[in-house]
């Protein structure tokens, strides 16, 4: 197919035949081929539950865990997310990466869950929810003296508390940017927002955390 198109181009633009690689058409077709290859790869990933689990489980689990602060719930939601993605793989259009698509599904599941509870989940966590102090204690602080390590843990604990007080969207955007280190465009795609809204949420989150951290000093 590619050869037929290329022959047509040669007929129309014989002067370009000397260096076909330099033409915009060839570059475009290369980009198209690359996009098609990535799309096929994404579909293959989505079609294989083993690959989905091994590649994306820890990432989705972490996002769900940090959003809900409940290990059991996070596990269940991760399973639902991956299964939904696997079953709905025919709807994947390749507009974004598989990771972003999974994050979008997970975000919707988290939203649905919080809505179904009709409450701010973080403020009224379930029995299996973990204490913030326990989370801060997991932090590794290599090379720090015990005193310095204690101070850092206290700061991290305060930070967790302030993140807990963010709105749902602000917290999700904050976690995706500063824990998952996703690009703003990917966060926008995952959260179904435009980039300006994502930036706005990030600024508000950072501002709220900065003010709260200064107060807690």
């Amino acid at each position: 197919m590619e050869q037929i198109i290329y022959a047509g181009q040669l007929t129309r633009f014989p002067e370009r035949s000397a260096n076909p690689a330099a033409t915009g058409d060839t570059v475009a077709s290369e980009a198209g081929r690359e996009k098609a290859r990535r799309f096929d790869q994404a579909l293959a990933e989505l079609g294989d539950m083993d690959v989905l689990y091994s590649s994306y489980r820890s990432r989705i689990y972490r996002y769900a865990l940090l959003s809900l602060r409940d290990p059991e719930l996070a596990e269940s939601l991760t399973h639902d997310c991956l299964l939904k993605a696997h079953n709905a793989r025919a709807q994947f259009r390749g507009d974004c990466s598989v990771a972003t698509w999974l994050t979008r599904i997970a975000t919707n599941l988290i939203r649905d869950h919080i809505r179904s509870r009709k409450m701010q989940f973080w403020k009224a966590a379930s029995n299996t929810a973990v204490d913030i102090g326990e989370i801060a204690d997991r932090m590794r602080a290599p090379g720090l003296t015990p005193e310095a390590s204690l101070l850092v843990r206290e700061r991290v604990k305060h930070l967790w508390e302030h993140v807990e007080n963010l709105s749902g969207n602000q917290r999700s955007v904050f976690l995706l940017r500063f824990v998952e280190e996703q690009e703003l465009a990917d966060i926008a795609a995952a959260m179904n927002m435009n980039i300006g809204t994502v930036k706005s949420h990030l600024h508000r989150a950072l501002s709220a955390i900065r003010v709260a951290m200064e107060k807690s000093k």
Partner: peptide
Amino acid sequence: FFRDSAIQ
């Protein structure tokens, strides 16, 4: 540090 604790 926040990220580290979250990942851990």
